[in-house]
Simulated scan of single mutants.
Amino acid sequence: MKGRPVPSAVRCSALLAVLAVLLAAVAVASLALGSVRIPPGEVVRIVLGGERTGAFASIVWDVRAPRVVLGALVGAGLAVAGTVLQALVRNPLADPFLLGASSGASAGAVVVIVLGVGAGVATTVALPVAAFVGSLGALVVVWALARRGGAMTTGRLVLAGVAVQYVLSAFTSLVLVLSARAEHVRAVLFWTLGGLGGARWSELALPAVALALGTGLLLALARPLDLMLAGEEDARGMGLDPGRFRAWAFVLTSLVVGVLVAHSGAIGFVGLMVPHAARMAVGAAHRRLLPVAALGGAVFLLLTDLLARTVAAPEEIPVGVVTALAGGPFFLWLLRRSTRAEGITG
């Protein structure tokens, strides 16, 4: 005799609990492993006891903990942004990186760095503002190109995203060539490949606020997002203006992506893979999907960053390279499946 199916809410709560435990375990591993290895028990003692003195405590609190916190924030934010973008454009290939949002944010941040806009606090403000403007601009351009001339298809969306990324890459290279300074080369490589090594406690407040505010507002908009995923006609029938809602959601998503990328550089494929895994686990309802995607994204990026720091130790691989190696094959598989569904033959 078959048992009753587990209610979706119970399954979602159980999955969130498992992900929270995984996040804590990966965080401890990230604090323990590195060029100097610290016993996990010692890490737990230092963190729970608030110990601040000693060599191990200094490594944990001053070097590794900010990186862990930033990684969790960025992973969660990119996963949430990818989930929302997939609903807004009704396409499984939507992702902050593939739609140019991350590239646009990186381009804006690079301009601020190379041109030396402001100093001190002014730069801290200018970076996320420029990244937000770049992210929003790239999203709008990709959306306009994909919609031009008729219905938006997977192929049109991918081509528009690739085209915008090439233009932004060329623009970034031009800014770099005109600058021709060694420190700018290092900065541009950071924004291009993505990395968490520059995390500082003093710079984590803005990403944390952006993620909390953005995710909270998007959770409040879970019902409209469900309607957008169902289709524009259904959304209109339920009293939603799809165009206006999409515009505001683009702004909100770009704000989250811009602020996070301003601190981590462009890290691809997190917003593509994690939402799919979360949707398979809890379904498409955004009230459950967004929290699962957020925790899943945090776990995934911390795991990939841990791999990036340890696989070639003492050298460190940019975390964006590791996510691209994992996400590239997944993207090709998803693209093949999507084009088949649309009846496109190769």
Rank of each mutant, 00 (worst) to 15 (best):
G108C: 13
A81F: 04
A87D: 13
A79R: 02
D62E: 15
L85Y: 03
G77S: 11
D95N: 14
V89A: 14
S103T: 00
P92F: 13
S58N: 13
V60H: 01
G108R: 03
V112I: 13
T83R: 01
A94Y: 07
T83V: 06
P66E: 11
G82Q: 03
R64L: 08
A79N: 09
V89P: 02
G100P: 05
G108V: 09
A107S: 14
L85D: 04
I113G: 00
T83I: 00
A109C: 10
G77Q: 05
L93P: 04
T83N: 08
V60N: 01
L73I: 15
V69S: 06
A72V: 12
G104P: 06
R90G: 13
V63I: 15
V89D: 04
G75N: 12
V89Q: 11
V68C: 10
A79H: 04
R90F: 08
P66W: 10
S103H: 15
A76R: 01
A65T: 04
P92D: 14
G82P: 03
V68M: 13
V84P: 00
S103W: 07
G77K: 05
A72W: 12
A79Q: 06
V60Y: 01
G75I: 14
A81Y: 02
P96E: 03
L99K: 05
A57R: 07
L70G: 04
V68P: 01
G100W: 00
L99E: 03
R67K: 14
F56P: 06
V74Q: 02
P66N: 12
L70W: 07
V110Y: 01
L85M: 15
L98H: 05
S106C: 06
A57Q: 10
L99C: 12
L98W: 03
W61H: 14
S102L: 03
R64C: 09
S102P: 03
A57K: 10
Q86W: 09
I113Y: 02
V63K: 02
A101V: 08
R90Y: 11
G82T: 08
A109E: 05
A109T: 08
F97I: 02
A94H: 09
A79G: 10
L78H: 01
F97D: 07
A87E: 03
R67V: 09
V84E: 02
F97N: 02
A94Q: 08
I59Q: 04
R90W: 13
A79E: 05
F97S: 12
G75M: 13
V60S: 01
A87M: 11
V84L: 08
D95M: 13
A65S: 10
S106G: 13
V112A: 11
G100Q: 05
V63F: 15
S106L: 02
T53Y: 11
R52M: 11
G108F: 07
A65P: 01
P92E: 15
L85S: 04
I113K: 01
T53V: 12
L85Q: 10
A72T: 10
R67N: 10
A105I: 07
A107Y: 04
G104N: 08
A105F: 05
R64D: 08
A79T: 09
A94C: 09
A94V: 10
R90P: 11
G82L: 05
S102K: 00
V89Y: 11
V84F: 07
D95T: 11
V69G: 06
A72H: 09
A107V: 08
Q86V: 14
V112L: 07
